[in-house]
Design a protein around this nucleic acid. Structure first.
Lengths: 402, 402
DNA sequence: GCCACTATATTCACAGACCTAACAAACTCA
DNA sequence: TGAGTTTGTTAGGTCTGTGAATATAGTGGC
């Protein structure tokens, strides 16, 4: 049980691994395949240190040699890569209308994925724990992965939470979750360490960096049922004092604006979040399929309409995007990032509408111009949070012990 | 010259000192006087390590023993404290209408302070360098401190900058500073390492923590001629990818709001910053003394009027405060801090009007309620930026070498 | 005033991380 | 085939920090 709490501790920002072993593993993982010489450059360690650390990792079965590079006039480089089958982690993303599972291997690749209907609005937390535990077990079983190689589970849910204590406040659909220590219950039920994280923060951890240049400071703008953001610094997420950093959905963007479920008024989420977009679309008489369709499913229906030429749907989304752009600008102003990634289920379905509007505002703002902040769309938006939670587990100390 | 750049390097967030020597010095400095046993608790190092490190620090003249604590049944603790006279650093805060110098000793105390009129709007940067160099030299001379003990200089100016390159964009009064590498010029002129920092970020570093409980994540909301903020994590400031984190003055708080000098519209600073407050007060016919009085001096005149019962002045400031409260809420939402300190010259003169309004909004916001974020006024607001710059220099690697 | 007791601080021997310097291995090219 | 080049390893040393044992300087009982 000692180990269990270890993974989810870490008050505030977790500095870059002082642990060279973790540093090497991270470097190999994010590079794909690298040679030892390259590792000396990436990590700043000396060649002998790299040799020693890599040897131990190979002995422990965490890293493999993977053929040779071509010679550049001398001995060719021996390439290294993560032994993908060494360990696995599970990532789970819960929201009212969907429940996403991913199984991620030690190299960080998704080897299994499962999306199911969410527990709905009035679910009993204890029953949901049961269900998640059962489905997690089933996921592992069906994937054919040896369960003893599964290190732990990263669990993600929307909204503010207090690390190690559970959800502290929640959107209307999940109020009965407040104060329920779901990750602890999952730990007990599954016998695996579990980590609890905010959806947006996890998404920041899960975003693959596909930019050419080196990005050490990036943020994710996450939209699912709500709106949030996460900040990633050199691969570590910034969580704030209580694990609630990045609550961009509840900054006030309009004095005297509409009431938000959070108790405040004029929140970005209340004005331009998916729930509001859906309400506006319904009010405008758009056909979103079944009237029982809610949350991201309903939002996706609007996006489909907009993308197939419905100008009313498009106008509603473009209006939402102009507000989201404000949030994005706040993120870049406050965090000063090199890269902002739009991610989460809502951007997965409507990102192409939001992206140019957000980009334009960022690039035309004074600081955007001065420093050239890039804004991109995550191609794995749907699963970003679940993947991120899994990756956070994969980067915990647990994951590098022999 | 190697050393010189060392102090101002540090891409993005600088993790807690891995350097135990620096850790010990920091711990003693922030505790005032401590025993070795207490240091083992604070730092997590073992008793033998503390013994050794402290012995070296005493040998190097950086730390002194300072009598004994009272016994609690055994050997009384030998108290340690920083040898204040071991080293000194200078902090300089430049704005259009004032130039503040502080000389800070190795214990972090201000031993000399000098506030002078600013260079005004149309000053030649080279001449300002000359003037600052001369006045810095004079400050040191008059203080009686041995110049060879002065480690370096922390330089602070308003607005966005790119670390190591100078100011990148600037308020109207300082546009001619754009691109001028003032800290490099000061280094050359004074023969001392210099560090360039944004005023708000430095203020976060300069704020003394007077709260009872342990604060590891705090932010400063800084108001001088402009509005900015800084984030401090475990004693290290977060600077962002380009040194521009915390630009809360240029988040948009009103769609279609007034034009800001930064090129954007609806910026917090344009709506509620000191310049706007002064303009409104003049428009309302308030007597601010000489019509040539500008910047913080004019703002201070309004604050005096408000505090002596002028209801028009008070209304103008209260309106500004309600907008600043939005900015404060954004800070707490994005950074999730335990403590928010209002600081800078403008809060130094009008803080008592702003504080309750800001406090109320933070405490009534959902996340404020859930996690109890404290909001306080800095009693050293006038000098916070200069002091902070000095303290940042004091925490650089330079400052702990024998 | 002496003795046990306790809390504080130090010494000593050792483990581990990481470095420099020297060396071995594996390729290219003349 | 061998010189040159690049990659990786071995050997030895330094430095940091640890645990175990010990020294130091008080308190309080008798």
């Amino acid at each position: 049980m000692q180990q269990v709490s270890d993974a989810s501790r870490s008050p505030g920002y977790d500095p870059a691994p002082t642990n060279s072993r973790a540093l090497i593993v991270d470097s190999i993982r994010s590079a794909g395949t690298v040679s030892r010489v390259e590792l000396t450059q990436i990590t700043g360690l000396t060649a002998p240190s790299v040799t020693t650390l890599v040897r131990r990792l190979i002995d422990d079965g965490l890293v493999d040699e993977a053929g040779r590079g071509s010679s550049t006039g001398g001995k060719p480089r021996t390439m290294l890569r993560i032994r993908a089958a060494a360990r696995y982690v599970v990532g789970v993303h819960l929201s009212a209308d969907s429940l996403t599972y991913v199984l991620v291997d030690y190299a960080g690749a998704v080897v299994a994925r499962w999306r199911r209907a969410g527990p709905g609005d009035d679910s009993d937390p204890e029953q949901v724990v049961e269900r998640i535990a059962a489905e997690t077990t089933e996921l592992i079983e069906r994937s054919g992965v040896d369960p003893s190689l599964v290190l732990g589970l990263g669990f993600v849910c929307p909204g503010p939470l207090i690390r190690n204590r559970g959800v502290t406040s929640a959107p209307p659909s999940m109020t009965h979750w407040v104060g329920f220590p779901i990750h602890r219950r999952l730990e007990e039920r599954l016998g695996l360490p579990a980590l609890l994280e905010n959806d947006a923060t996890a998404a920041a951890a899960g975003t693959r960096l596909t930019t050419s240049h080196d990005v050490s400071v990036m943020a994710a703008l996450f939209m699912s049922e709500g709106i949030g953001s996460g900040l990633r610094l050199n691969g570590n997420v910034y969580q704030g004092a209580h694990g609630n950093a990045g609550e961009v959905g509840h900054i006030c963007v309009q004095i005297g604006g509409p009431q938000c479920w959070c108790g405040s008024t004029g929140c970005l989420e209340a004005i331009a979040g998916p729930a509001t977009v859906v309400a506006k679309a319904r009010a405008a008489g758009l056909d979103l399929g079944s009237p029982r369709r809610t949350g991201v499913a309903a939002f996706a229906a609007i996006a489909r309409l907009a993308l197939t030429g419905d100008s009313r749907a498009e106008a509603i989304l473009r209006d939402s995007a102009s507000w989201l752009a404000l949030g994005a600008q706040t993120i870049t102003n406050m965090y000063d990032v090199q890269l902002l990634v739009l991610t989460g289920p809502a951007f997965a379905v409507a990102g192409t509408i939001y992206l140019p509007i957000i980009q334009e505002r960022i690039l035309s703002s004074a600081f955007g111009r001065a420093v050239n902040t890039e804004v991109v769309l995550d191609e794995r938006g749907h699963d970003a949070a679940a993947i991120g939670a899994a990756l956070m587990m994969l980067r915990s100390d647990l994951a590098i012990s022999a």
